[in-house]
């Protein structure tokens, strides 16, 4: 345990083969070497999550990254199931639930719509900062620090208009800065 990586990325993508942006992001992160990556859909293809294993993983890391494409203004279903099962009473919150206290939570999200659509006069009406409040409040209840999320808007055309490379760089810098964080 002396050489433990302090960042864990919980990656939830049900169709990695169709991914345009998330795959590039996760592959770049994997190159870093000091992050632990959990491909949630690969480990639990039947949605039957090994709660003990997941809790042990969270205990072993200081920074928890949730990386996912935005589905219906929220996480893909398996990542929600993961929250329901793993962040349980007595572990993450409630009586004796202090396992995550002091850790940092970072959401890394790709969204199909452009940034303009996520505003009071856009199609999606609400900014992401409002839509993500359930996750933010989860972090608060677990006594975790909710870091400002990394969002890639208009993810489908990010590769064609050259934004993906800057975003990857941004992601890697963030992860590297978090490496020493406690």
């Amino acid at each position: 345990m002396t050489d433990k990586t302090n960042i864990i990325i919980v990656y939830a993508h049900p169709r990695r083969d169709l991914s345009r942006a998330n795959e590039q992001l996760i592959n770049a992160a994997a190159e870093l070497g000091h992050v632990k990556i959990v491909d949630l859909y690969a480990e639990y293809p039947t949605y039957y999550i090994d709660i003990v294993q997941e809790q042990e993983r969270l205990i072993a890391h200081d920074v928890i990254v949730l990386q996912f494409p935005l589905y219906w203004y929220s996480t893909p279903a398996l990542l929600k199931e993961w929250q329901d099962q793993v962040l349980e009473y007595g572990f993450a919150y409630g009586d004796g639930g202090t396992a995550l206290a002091g850790k940092k939570l970072l959401c890394v999200i790709t969204a199909g719509g452009s940034k303009d659509t996520y505003s009071s006069n856009g199609t999606n009406n609400y900014p992401l900062s409002t839509l993500l409040t359930p996750i933010q409040q989860t972090a608060i209840l677990c006594d975790m620090e909710f870091l400002s999320p990394l969002v890639l808007y208009s993810a489908k055309c990010a590769a064609t208009d050259d934004r993906i490379d800057t975003h990857i760089q941004h992601y890697l810098t963030t992860l590297t800065n978090l490496k020493g964080a406690q």
């Binding site: 709660i51 349980e88 009473y89 007595g90 572990f91 409630g94």
Partner: peptide, 13 residues
Amino acid sequence: RGEKGWTPPPRSF
């Protein structure tokens, strides 16, 4: 702790 999955938190919570 153990294999149990989601159950509602106790009333005291």
